[in-house]
Each structure stands twice: as C-alpha cells, then as structure tokens.
Simulated assay, not measured.
Amino acid sequence: MPEQPVLAGVDGSEGSVKAAYWAAAEASRRNAGLQLLIVNDDPARADHAEQAVRKIAAKCRVHTPEVVVTAEVATGHPVEELVRRSARAQLVVLGARGHGGFADALLGGVSTGVATHAACPVIVVRKNIPTTVGPVVVGVDESPCSQQALRFAYAAAARLHAELVILQVWHEEGLLAVPLAPGDRDRVQHEIEQALVKQTAPLREQYPQVATREVVQRGHPVSVLTDSARDARLLVVGHRGSGGFDGLFLGSVAAGVLHHATCPVAVVRDAEGTG
C-alpha cells in the first residue's frame, strides 16, 4: 500500500548505509516513504545513535531527493522491534551484517530472525554494492507461500525492468529414498517443467512486459539458487509465516540462501500464515 513506508533497519555501519540506499531506491520505485530506524538498547549510546541515523537520512535524501525520509531511534530488542514495526510497513530492508557503531544490533542472526517472523516481505542486502543489471531470480515449489513469492518477484521485475528467472530445484531426496534411474529422472524433470509452466501462466499474462525464463534444475536448493542468482539484482524465496519453510524451502535452505547469496535476498511470507 502506498501509504505504508519502506522500513530500513540501520546500525551506522557501511553495510547498513548501502542497505539504506537500496531501500531508498526501492521506496522511489514504489512511490513510498522511507523510514530509517536504529534500535538501540544502550542509553549511553543514545546521542551516537541519533547522529548516526540522521547522517544516513541526509545521505539518502541526496541520493533520492524525491523520497520522503524519516529517521528514528527506538529502544528495545532489534528483532522484536523490527518485527513489530513490520506490521505497519510494506517492506523491511536490512543489511546482512553490521561492522560499525551499532554492529551488535544488526548481526546476521537479527536479519534472519526478522526475515523469518516479519509481517511483510523482508529484503536482506549484502555488504557488496548490489548490481543494477541482471535478472530477478525466484525460487518456487508448489506451496502457497511459493505463489506469494512468485507474485512478489513479478512485481519486482516489472519495477526494475528486469528479466525474471523462475527456478524450481528438485532432487531425489525430496521424492524417494533412493536415487532415480536416468529414465525416471527425465520423466520427473519433464513433469515438473510442465507443472511450472502451468503455475506461472496467469502471472505471465498479468505481466506481459516482464521477460520470463523458467528453469527446472536437479540439485541442492541452496547451491542452485545462490549460483543462479550470482549476477542477479534480487533473489526471492517464500516463507510460510509460522516459522518454517514450505516445500523445498526448509529453514536450513532459506538460512543457507541468506548466508551465501551475494545479491539482495527477499523473503516473502505466505499471506495466510500466522505471526
């Protein structure tokens, strides 16, 4: 919703500043405001926190003058506060790891915790500068949360004027206890490819301007997703909202993607989920 802001959790580090820039650009694409937030649990650092968040806000206003930027310092636990505020945001953006004045506030565990429990989609931006070329990649299966992720990915690709790569990963361990014979493997591959085309057909019609490529690949989900998204602008995965991950996207897979992907990662919860 346009009246809801993009919320960026920052900590004063260089990595969180890059995440804030990404959030500001995304707010511009969404015609939304940007809310910068530092969660500080040490009263002795209150002045430092205020100075840090104001400095980042000033930089964002220079980079994206069309975006209304607000800045705030809140007290409390970073995960709890960011999750609470996610209910009033259309998107939460976080740095993957902090290395500055409030480095302890946005460590990887905080980003993962917020991505797992937030009421809105969460994007985790790595330290390296995100690419401005390349596709949006979305990992899908046949679960409801996968459909939410797919819709999010189509909308993101449309805003970025990017190609969308829809990737479904499978491996025998998810189907049978023993490896498939080559002929059976080909049959399963073909069946998944046909199901994927059917699954994506309505959104291809809804977003005719988005060039779409569907890929079904056998392998380990973390390695295939991260390899496929190496040069991507965004990697999107789905989340159930109850703390677990549906289908192929078990908690360990999502955590692996968040840890290993070099591009920004969006975690999209199932709208039907609880939390």
Rank of each mutant, 00 (worst) to 15 (best):
257 V>T: 06
202 P>K: 09
202 P>T: 04
112 T>Y: 11
163 E>M: 08
186 D>V: 08
133 V>P: 04
186 D>R: 15
153 A>S: 07
228 S>Q: 10
273 G>K: 06
188 V>Y: 03
160 L>T: 02
37 L>Q: 08
275 G>S: 15
85 R>T: 01
129 I>H: 10
13 S>P: 01
179 P>S: 04
60 C>Y: 02
19 A>K: 08
266 A>F: 06
182 P>H: 04
5 P>V: 01
38 I>N: 08
135 P>N: 01
97 R>F: 04
183 G>Q: 15
6 V>I: 05
229 A>C: 06
244 G>T: 14
180 L>S: 02
91 L>P: 07
137 V>W: 03
129 I>T: 15
196 L>I: 12
98 G>H: 02
122 V>R: 09
53 V>Q: 11
42 D>G: 04
258 L>P: 01
199 Q>Y: 04
173 E>A: 14
25 A>C: 12
94 L>W: 08
168 Q>S: 13
43 P>V: 03
9 G>K: 09
260 H>E: 15
142 E>L: 14
196 L>F: 08
172 E>K: 00
86 S>I: 02
95 G>A: 10
116 T>R: 15
269 R>L: 07
267 V>N: 11
123 I>Y: 09
268 V>E: 10
81 E>A: 09
83 V>I: 03
24 A>Y: 10
123 I>G: 07
196 L>P: 07
5 P>Q: 02
95 G>Y: 12
216 V>E: 02
4 Q>E: 09
